[in-house]
């Protein structure tokens, strides 16, 4: 036996997790930057936006993009750039809240359904099947039409409910599947053998172990929720005038003037696309990042 050959390697450096993520998922990192920009715009809208988004200016109706009005103005002379910036606020608040409630309730139901099994599981799965058989938008439409408006602090709670309900069963399915395998883990048996309460086992022992798919879906469904909110607003069932919302900006007199003033629909449309694309992309790369099979 000889001594070990002396070999030096260029070792993969221990990187900061943010940097490591950027290297492994460059598209995800770009998406993340877009998201951060969106959040920044939403948070600091009053400082970012040059005009009041609801202020009418009949002297500058349908003005094309210029140094004064970057994205032009609409039929009422409102500054489109300011409305897009404030629209980020609406999109994010409604998108995040509906995705959060839909995913969280869906996850709780999924874990409970997997844990209890038997009849409870059967009934839950039946209900989920029923809800899943409706197209997303149709279901949201029905809920909004049935519930009407219920505004708290400038946010339409019923709109959030309407968007969260179609998300819930989809998340329930995925989380239930993940929780079914967690349920078979000996540590869950150990917790049962210790005589802990069902809620303790569900929330303390099982839920944290399905956190990865939950977080991924939370991000991905923000995109869905933003899209749904825009669609509902476009159809006149979501956010109502004069609140700046991207979907709303595409409808109304925008449809009358889009030939003369295409900027009225171009910029809010791009905003929706970018936001949805960014959240989807970020959700996807998060999923890949968390999946151990993608790691060396």
């Amino acid at each position: 036996m000889t001594a070990a050959p002396l070999i030096t390697y260029a070792l993969p450096k221990r990187r900061h997790p943010v940097l490591a993520f950027t290297v492994a998922q460059p598209l995800g990192a770009i998406a993340f930057v877009v998201i951060v920009v969106m959040i920044g715009a939403g948070l600091f809208a009053p400082w970012v936006a040059p005009y009041d988004p609801v202020a009418l200016d009949f002297g500058a109706m349908l003005a094309p993009p210029s140094l004064e009005h970057w994205f032009g103005t609409d039929a009422f002379g409102r500054d489109i750039f300011s409305r897009v910036v404030y629209g980020a606020r609406t999109a994010l608040v409604i998108g995040f809240l509906s995705s959060f409630f839909g995913c969280t309730l869906g996850a709780a139901l999924g874990v409970a359904s997997a844990y209890f099994g038997g009849k409870i599981d059967l009934v839950t799965q039946g209900l989920v099947d029923v809800v899943l058989s409706f197209p997303l938008i149709v279901l949201a439409l029905v809920v909004v039409a049935m519930l009407g408006k219920f505004v708290i602090g400038g946010v339409d709670v019923n709109l959030i409910v309407a968007i969260a309900i179609p998300i819930l069963p989809k998340v329930e399915r995925v989380i239930r599947a993940a929780a079914l395998s967690v349920r078979e883990m000996p540590y869950v048996d150990a917790a049962r053998a210790a005589g802990y309460s069902n809620s303790r086992i569900i929330f303390r022992h099982m839920a944290p172990n399905v956190a990865a798919p939950y977080l991924i879906m939370l991000t991905a469904y923000i995109a869905q929720a933003i899209l749904l909110e825009a669609s509902l607003s476009f159809l006149g069932l979501g956010v109502t005038e004069p609140t700046p919302a991207w979907g709303l900006m595409l409808s109304g007199n925008a449809s009358d003037f889009y030939r003369e003033a295409p900027w009225m629909i171009l910029f809010p449309g791009l905003a929706i696309s970018f936001a949805v694309f960014a959240f989807n992309l970020f959700g996807d790369s998060l999923r890949d990042w968390f999946d151990p099979r993608f790691k060396v």
Partner: peptide, 24 residues
Amino acid sequence: EMQKLRRQIQVIFQDPFSSLNPRM
């Protein structure tokens, strides 16, 4: 009654990898 009994009867599992909650 069962909960009282559970405290007296405990278990040690085979697989030391899956018998501990990885998040705790």
